[in-house]
Amino acid sequence: MDHLDQLEAQSVFILREAYRKLKPLAMLWSLGKDSNVMIWLARKAFLGRVPFPVMHVDTEKKFPEMYKFRDEYTKKWNLDLQLGYCPPVEEMDPTLPPAARSAARKTAGLAAMIEKHKLQGVIAGIRRDEQGTRAKERVFSPRGASHKWDIRNQPPEFWDQYATPHEDGVHIRVHPLLAWREIDIWRYVEREGIPLVDLYFARNGKRYRSLGDQDITSPIESNASTLAEVITELETTRTSERAGRAMDHESEDAFERLRVAGYL
């Protein structure tokens, strides 16, 4: 087994644990490369199907290409797509810096979806190498009634034994991609032929490395217009993947505050 086989096998194991232990369960689909890989892994785990709803918490500020992609692949992949909407920015914590405040809308939209569907498990495609606080996450990360991430008090997680919810109002964030790196995602996309929004590929010397809301996401300078070129670029790159995501960088603690409050 090579590195990608190992990552795939472990993610499949995690998804099957989630499907067995958490009901109702749903997967978040941000339309980005990581969540497309996640859907692909679910189809690996469940022999070609995704046996739970796929949820898109829509900020209504995504790129038009992303909406088009969503509609196309919902049909092609036979997904049970559920949409959630986000409250206006005016309702968000005013002490957050502007981009983080905008990103907080997604937290609120997600919380509403979890309440509405009484979800016990939410599968999300975060990775440890994206950001320092994500590096401290568990594969099964319990969230209390207020959806808060209690970073001081995470449960032990070892030998593939994961936390199980033991009381009402607790849900588990399941992170099957935690051990994947950005380059692994791209190599897997290449190996498996997983479709992506073409914003990831360079046009006129620019491409997006990470996709979020239009107003708080920046492209990078790049001429990588094919999968192979993107992979070569990443192999020689040393800037951070989320450098183009404004809410990560406004202040040292902005992203941690978002995450503690329930952001992904």
Binding site: P219, E221, E233, E235, T237, R238, T239, A243, G244
Partner: peptide, 20 residues
């Protein structure tokens, strides 16, 4: 705004990168 360029380090051998 566009973020600025990337620094080049030695490209690593593909096969090695695929090792666990």
């Amino acid at each position: 705004e566009t973020l600025t360029a990337t620094t080049i380090i030695d490209p690593i051998d593909r096969d090695v990168a695929l090792e666990s």
